[in-house]
Design a protein around this nucleic acid. Sequence first.
DNA 1: CGAGGGATTTGAAGCGCTTTAAACACGAGT
DNA 2: ACTCGTGTTTAAAGCGCTTCAAATCCCTCG
Lengths: 338, 338
Amino acid sequence: MAGKRVRLGDVAAAVGASPASVSLVLRGAPGPSAEMRERVLEAAQRLGYRPDRAASSLASRRSRLIGLLVDVRSPFHADVAAHLQDAAEARGYDLVLSTVTPSRGEDRAVETLLDSRCEALVLIGPDAPADRLGELAATVPLVVLCRRLEPVSVAPDVVRTADEVGTALAVEHLHLLGHSMIAYVDGGPGTVARDRRDGYLHAMAARGLAPRVLPGAGTPPGTEIIGIRAAEALLDGGELPTAVVAFNDRTAVGLLDTLSRNGIDVPGEVSLVGYDDDPFSRMAHVDLTTVGQDTEALAGRAVEAVVARLDGGREEAAPEQVLDPYLAVRRTTGPRRA
Amino acid sequence: MAGKRVRLGDVAAAVGASPASVSLVLRGAPGPSAEMRERVLEAAQRLGYRPDRAASSLASRRSRLIGLLVDVRSPFHADVAAHLQDAAEARGYDLVLSTVTPSRGEDRAVETLLDSRCEALVLIGPDAPADRLGELAATVPLVVLCRRLEPVSVAPDVVRTADEVGTALAVEHLHLLGHSMIAYVDGGPGTVARDRRDGYLHAMAARGLAPRVLPGAGTPPGTEIIGIRAAEALLDGGELPTAVVAFNDRTAVGLLDTLSRNGIDVPGEVSLVGYDDDPFSRMAHVDLTTVGQDTEALAGRAVEAVVARLDGGREEAAPEQVLDPYLAVRRTTGPRRA
DNA sequence: CGAGGGATTTGAAGCGCTTTAAACACGAGT
DNA sequence: ACTCGTGTTTAAAGCGCTTCAAATCCCTCG
C-alpha cells in the first residue's frame, strides 16, 4: 500500500514495451496498434498507474490549466464554477480558481491566474472595461462569460445568455395569464440591466401593451431595497399594475415583501417575476417565478471554446454564443383576477 | 513582451552565478551569502522571473497542493474556500477544489483529489462516517473542518466552531433582553444539530429557565418547511413563547414568514434568532439576528494544521481546535414587550 | 526473392528546477 | 607555511514524462 508510486516506466516494463509506447497509448495518441493499446491499458489499470501531472506538464510544456475568475459570494458563479470543473475535467483540463474579493480586485485576481501558468482564462461577468478585456485577450485565450461585449480589436470568445429573451419570456408568460398592465423594475446601469429592460420593452411593444418602467438606480442597485422602493412607488402611484417583472430576484423579493406587508396578495392581486433563479427564490416561502440561466450549458460552451483554441488550433474568437434562458414558473404568478 | 519565458538559468546567467545558488536564494534556503541574495533577488525582479511550478514540483517531489472538498451549493463553504485560498497562497500552497454534487459523492470527490497528487486534504463538514475519515487520515494528512469527530484510530486534525456556544450565545442575548420563555426549533439528526440543541438546553438550565424544544425532523431537515411547521405548532399550542431560537437561518426564515403572515410581529411579540449568518439573512427585509462562524479563522487554522504536518514535521493530529462563534444582532430580536 | 513503403515501436534528448556531494575560498590555529 | 574548519558556491545527476527522429517490422509489389 505504501509502496512507491507506479510510474510510466513500471507499466512499460510490465508489458515489455518502451515508455514511449506507453505514453502514446495513455494519451490516446495515434500510432500504437490495437494490441499494444490493450496490453498497456490492462497493465496500467492493474498496477493502478496514475500519471504525474507535473512531469507531463513539464515535458509537454503545457499546464492544461484553465484559470477561472469568480466572485465567490455569488451562488450563480459558484454554480457555473462547479459545472466548469466537470466540463474541464472531462476534457483533461484542470481549473485554477481566483476569487475576487473586496480586497482583491479583478486585475489582481487575473494576475494570479496568469502567474500560475494557465493556458486560458474564463471570466464570469467581469466588470473590467471592454478594451481592458481586449488587451487581455491579446495575451491569452480568453472566454468572457455572461456578459455582452462591444467589439474590440482582439476579441475574446463570448458565451452568454440572451437576457433580452429572459424578460421577454416573463412578459409572454404574464400576457398569457391575461395580464396587460405589466410594470418593470429596472436594475440600474450596466449592460445586463440594459438588455433585460430592452427585452421587456420590446416584448410589451410587440403585444401592443403600454410599458411602465420604475427606476432601479440607487445604492446598491439590484438589491431588495430597490424592490422595496419600487413597491412603495407603486402603492402610492394610483393604479396598481396586475403584474411586475423585476430586474433580478433580490429586487423581486423586496417587492414581494413590501406588497405582502401592505396587504396586497401575490399572486392574487399582483403577479411577480424575478430574474436569476437564485437559490433563495426556491425557498418554500418565497417560491418565486423567475428566469434562469442554464449554467451547465454556459460552462460547457466555455470549455468547448477553450479547447477549440488550445487543442483545435483555432486562432480567432468564435462568434458570440448566446444561449436561451429558461422560465421557472412558481407560485408568484397567476391568472389575472377577473 | 512575447519573448520566451524567463528561466532560472537566465537569472543565474544575469548575476553570473550558478542555477543552484539562484534556486537556493529564491526559496529562502540557508546557505547563500547576503550579497548573493541581494544580487539574485534584484535580477529575478528585474527580469520578471516566475518559477515554473511543474518543474519545481517534479524536482522536489512535492506538489504543494492542498485538496479541498466543498459543497459548492453552500455559500458558507464558498466563503471558507475563498479564505483557504488566501491562507494557502500565503504559505506557498495552492488549492485544488473538488465539489460534491448530487451526481458526485464525497468518496468520488476525494478520489479525484488524491489523484491530483494533493499532499493534504481539507474536508468541510464531511458526511462520511468517522471511521471512514480515520482510514483516510491514515493515508494522507487530513483536516476535518466544521465537524466534531468521535475518536478514531488515526485521528485527522479537527478545526470547528463551538456550536453549543452559539446557541448559548443566542439564549444569553435573549435572556438579557428580558425573555424567559425561549423555545428552540431543532434541526434533526447529525452531530451539528445535537451540539446546537445541547447548547440551548444547557444555557436554559443554567438560567433556571424551562426549555421547550420543537422537533426539527422531517424532510428535508434544516429548511424553511421545518420553520413553517414549527410556527404553526407554536400558534396552535396555546401560549406563544416570547422568543425562538432556530437550528439554522433557513428554519428561522420559515418561522419569521409564518409568524408575520399570522399577524405576529417580530420582534415586537416574538424575538427570533437563527444560526449560520447566511447571506440572505442580511437581506434588508429579513435582517435576521443570527449566530455565525468565523470563516477566516477556520480557514487559517486549517492551513496552519496542514503546514505543521507538511513542513513542520508534525506526525500526530493536533488536539481538536474549537473556535467561538459570533452573534450578529440584527432586527429580529428586541426587548420583551412589557 | 529483394526492394519499397506504410505502420509501429523505441532510443535518447530534454523540459526547468532541486538536491547532494564535492569543490572552493579564506582566515584561524599550530 | 600548512592543515583545518567554516561558510559559500557549484557541477552534475536526476524528477517522470513527452517527443521526434531513427530503427524495426511486416506486407505488398515487381
